[in-house]
Design a protein around this nucleic acid. Sequence first.
DNA 1: CGCGAGCTTGACGTTGTTCAACTAGAGTGG
DNA 2: CCACTCTAGTTGAACAACGTCAAGCTCGCG
Lengths: 235, 235
Amino acid sequence: MPFHFNYSIMTNNQANCLFCNNKSVCFKELTGDELARITENKVEISYKKDETIIKQHGFASNIYFIKKGLVKIYLENTDRNLIIEIGGEGKVLGLTSLNHTKHYMFSATAIENVVLCEISMDVINEIMQTNQYFNRQVISTLNTTIEKILKKLYCISHKHLNGRLAEALLCFADDIYKSHKFTLGISRKDLSDITNMATENVVRLLKEFNEKKYIKLTGKNIEILNYSALKQLSR
Amino acid sequence: MPFHFNYSIMTNNQANCLFCNNKSVCFKELTGDELARITENKVEISYKKDETIIKQHGFASNIYFIKKGLVKIYLENTDRNLIIEIGGEGKVLGLTSLNHTKHYMFSATAIENVVLCEISMDVINEIMQTNQYFNRQVISTLNTTIEKILKKLYCISHKHLNGRLAEALLCFADDIYKSHKFTLGISRKDLSDITNMATENVVRLLKEFNEKKYIKLTGKNIEILNYSALKQLSR
DNA sequence: CGCGAGCTTGACGTTGTTCAACTAGAGTGG
DNA sequence: CCACTCTAGTTGAACAACGTCAAGCTCGCG
C-alpha cells in the first residue's frame, strides 16, 4: 500500500511546531494560533550532503529553518562562487527576499546531512501582518545578516591571504564546530570560495600553518594549536 | 536678542512632516498622528561638505533622512576606509541599527552640502510598535541594502581593477548624477576607497580610459563617451 | 589493477601595491 | 602681489602578492 505509506510520512513531517524545542529566535514569540498556521504550511525535509536547497535567482516561495546540519550559503557565478556564510542549526534562510524581490539572492547547499523545515512564504507574510514582535525579530535578524556581510566585505577587501584563512579557521573553531579540534566537512575548493583565493593557496597556507605549529593538519582533520597566533594573523 | 533668533531657527527646523513632499518610501504610509509624532521629534539640519554625519561605533540614537545632497557611507579602519555606497536624496541612514545593536555599523560624511532630517530612534521604535506597513517598508529597505552590499562584495572579490572602476563610473552616471556628463564631488582617494584599489591606480586607469576614449576626463569633470565599452569592462 | 577526483607542489607570469619624486593649484601671510 | 606652503594629483620603477599552469601524487572505488 504505497499510498498509505506516503501518507504516514506526511503526517510525520507535519509535527506540531508548538512542541518544537529548537525554534529560531524569530519564531520564539509566535502565538499558538500562528504556530498552528505554520504547522499546516510547513514540511520537514532531509537533505544529503551536496544537495541544493536554495537556487540563486529562483522564485522565493519558501523560507527554510535549519534544524540540524550545515549548509553553505553562496553567490554563484559562471567562473567562480563566493561562500558568504556557513549556516548551522537555528539559521533561517530566505528572509532576505521578504517584501523586496520575488527571487532568492543566493544559493544554499548542504555540506553534510541536513534536516530543515520548509515554510511557505505566504504564511510568513500572513503572520507579519498581525504579529509586531515577529516583524521586529525579522528586522533584527536582517540586521545581523548585514553586519555579517559587512564583516565579510571588510575581510576580503582589507586582509591578505593568510589573514583571511586564519579568520576562516577561527570561525570554524569558534562558531561552527565550537571546538579547537574538528573535521572539516568541506573541500579545499570550498575553503578557497570562502576566503576568495586560489585553491592552491589554501593548500600552501594550510601547510605553512601546519609547519609553524599554528594548527595540526591531517587531511580534513584540523586542530587549532596556536589560537592567538591565528587571531593575530587575522588582523 | 540672540535667544529669540535661535528660537526662530528652531521653529523653522520643525516644519511639519505631513507637508513634506519628498518623503522616503519608508514614510509614505504613516498616519497623520504618526507624522505629527515625527514632526515633534525631528530636526532639519544642514551639513557642509566633509562634515561627519554618522560615526561608526557611535550610539545609534537617530536615523537620518537625506532631503538633498550626497553622502558617502563607509567602513572605517586605522589604515584604510571602504566606501560601501554613495547615498543621495531619499536615502535613510541608521535603519541597520534597529533592534540589533545600539551602535552604528558605519560612518557617513557629506561629500557636498547636505540637508537632512534627523529623527529620534525612539519615535521610530514607537511607530514600529503600531504600524505594520512601516515595518514592512523597513524590511524591504533592509533587503535592498543587503542586495547592494552583496553586489559590492561580488564586485570586489571577482573583478579586476579596470572592471571595478568602470562599474563605479557607470554607477555615478546612471544612479547618482543621472547623466553621462558630471562633475565628480569626490577625490581620487575617495574613488580608490570605493573601488578598493590604490589611489595611483585610479589615476592611471582614468588616464587609460581617457586615452582609449571611453571617457573624457578634465580634472573632476567626467563625460562617458563609450558606455558599452565600460559596461563590457565591468563584467 | 586502473581510473578519476581532489589534493599537492614548484615554477612562472600577471596584477596590483608601494615608494619616491615631481607637478599643479589653492590658500596664506608678509 | 608675490613667495611660501600644503594638499591633491600624477608618473615611473621596483617590488610583493597572488593566480595560473603543468605535473605529480593519493586515495577511494569500480
